Amino acid sequence: MFTNLSFGRSAVAVRRLSPPRVPGGATVGRRLSLIAATAVSAAALVLGASAPATAAPDPGATHIVESGDTLSEIAQWHGVALGTVFALNGLGPSSVIHPGDVIRLTSDTAEVSAPPADAPSAARTHTVRSGDTLGRIAAQYGVSLDSVFELNGLSRSSIIYPGDIIRLTPGEPAGSGGQEEPARTGYSITLGPNATSRVVLTYDDCPRSLEAFSDVVSWAGSNDIGLVIAPTGDCIGGFQARHGVDLPALARANGQYVINHSVSHRDLTTLSCADAAAELGAPGVVTNFGRPPYGALNSAAHCGYAQVGMSPWLWSVDTKDWTGKTQADVVASVVGQAQPGGTVLMHLQWNGFSPSAIGQMREGLAARGLELCRAYPGTSPVHLPSSLPC
């Protein structure tokens, strides 16, 4: 049970009795809500917590954000160091809070318990629950946040969701023996409908040419590699007009998996629910999984996906190939960062999209004991199965 510690006063009344706001107390950033109904957790920036300035609040105390609140004021009102508030909630100086958000003021010792000891060679994992942040997870298991980022191909701008599996140590998951992992329970927005330990290579946006696209999807199909292709609707329409070729149909004919990437690559978080749903429709790919442009999601975007019956699918490794990396750089990024069951983000027009690049990725991952997702046996369906036959 959360407790609102405004002590019967409105935020404005309390603010009148408080010191002036500290500039930058809550600035532009990604929203974090710890209310279970949102089912969303933002990635965390862990800062060193310091001792409270005054007597600590009761164990498990929280503050429900009201209009006009800032993190610095909340810390001052409750006699808690600002660094402690950051660490407990996985926030940082650039984080933004909203009315209704629940801010933790003390650690919940019942939730943070020492994990069982694993064999040194076994990989420890954590299944994300509502309210988790990467900072809290790292602190709970006594590992560094940077190592969590590296092991999972994440960054400070990444988002985690309930059901996601966070790797905490290197190595194979306990008991896996290097074999495919059993199907997980629940949908992971970063791993998508791949419930195996095979790595999925995904490609967004639009290819440079029809020849380049055809070469890759036919080569991948003939080598039993299943790529996830996410073209925009504008791209599909352009190739249809110039060449009379349907890119999604061509990819599916070669056993490749095709998902939505919107019509025109608009940031869905800037749209209403209805406009987001329209952006996810035709002439974009009409299917049951979609890649949000820029990986940007909020309540309106989730509402749009729900309206069209589509599940968003993000990624666990971002190669940043769009920065102009060479083929060798992209291959090294994939081989070095991919983890069992991971989803790798690349783009159709950059240097990771070629038979030679994908072949080198396959060889490099094989040397680490990892395999790529397999092609669909025959023509892949428009609506993908809830568990890909990787």
Results as ranks from 00 to 15, higher is better:
residue 283 P to E: 12
residue 284 G to M: 06
residue 284 G to N: 07
residue 285 V to L: 07
residue 286 V to P: 08
residue 287 T to M: 02
residue 287 T to E: 01
residue 288 N to G: 11
residue 290 G to T: 03
residue 290 G to H: 04
residue 291 R to K: 04
residue 291 R to E: 02
residue 291 R to I: 03
residue 292 P to M: 06
residue 293 P to I: 02
residue 295 G to R: 03
residue 295 G to H: 07
residue 296 A to E: 02
residue 298 N to T: 08
residue 299 S to N: 13
residue 299 S to K: 05
residue 299 S to C: 09
residue 300 A to K: 14
residue 301 A to P: 00
residue 301 A to S: 09
residue 301 A to L: 03
residue 301 A to D: 02
residue 302 H to M: 15
residue 305 Y to I: 05
residue 307 Q to Y: 04
residue 307 Q to S: 12
residue 307 Q to T: 07
residue 309 G to I: 05
residue 309 G to M: 03
residue 310 M to C: 09
residue 311 S to F: 06
residue 311 S to M: 05
residue 312 P to C: 02
residue 312 P to W: 11
residue 315 W to F: 12
residue 315 W to I: 02
residue 315 W to E: 04
residue 317 V to S: 01
residue 317 V to M: 04
residue 318 D to N: 10
residue 318 D to P: 03
residue 318 D to L: 12
residue 318 D to M: 03
residue 321 D to Y: 08
residue 321 D to P: 09
residue 322 W to E: 12
residue 322 W to T: 04
residue 323 T to Y: 05
residue 324 G to L: 10
residue 325 K to Y: 10
residue 325 K to L: 07
residue 326 T to K: 09
residue 326 T to H: 05
residue 327 Q to G: 15
residue 327 Q to M: 14
residue 328 A to R: 14
residue 329 D to M: 12
residue 329 D to S: 13
residue 329 D to Q: 15
residue 332 A to H: 05
residue 334 V to F: 05
residue 336 G to I: 02
residue 337 Q to R: 15
residue 337 Q to L: 03
residue 337 Q to A: 14
residue 339 Q to F: 12
residue 339 Q to P: 00
residue 340 P to S: 00
residue 340 P to H: 00
residue 343 T to Q: 14
residue 345 L to I: 11
residue 347 H to L: 07
residue 349 Q to D: 15
residue 350 W to M: 14
residue 351 N to D: 14
residue 352 G to E: 01
residue 352 G to Q: 04
residue 353 F to R: 03
residue 353 F to P: 07
residue 354 S to A: 03
residue 354 S to F: 06
residue 355 P to S: 12
residue 356 S to F: 11
residue 356 S to C: 14
residue 359 G to R: 13
residue 360 Q to K: 09
residue 360 Q to L: 14
residue 360 Q to A: 15
residue 360 Q to H: 12
residue 361 M to P: 01
residue 361 M to R: 09
residue 361 M to N: 05
residue 361 M to T: 11
residue 362 R to F: 05
residue 362 R to I: 10
residue 363 E to C: 07
residue 364 G to Q: 02
residue 364 G to I: 08
residue 364 G to V: 07
residue 365 L to E: 00
residue 365 L to H: 00
residue 367 A to Y: 12
residue 368 R to F: 01
residue 368 R to V: 06
residue 369 G to A: 11
residue 370 L to Y: 02
residue 371 E to P: 02
residue 371 E to S: 08
residue 371 E to K: 06
residue 373 C to Y: 04
residue 374 R to V: 10
residue 374 R to K: 15
residue 375 A to S: 11
residue 376 Y to N: 00
residue 377 P to T: 09
residue 377 P to S: 11
residue 378 G to P: 11
residue 378 G to I: 14
residue 378 G to E: 10
residue 378 G to K: 13
residue 379 T to C: 08
residue 380 S to N: 04
residue 380 S to D: 03
residue 380 S to T: 01
residue 382 V to K: 11
residue 382 V to D: 13
residue 384 L to E: 02
residue 384 L to Y: 01
residue 385 P to C: 06
residue 386 S to M: 06
residue 386 S to K: 11
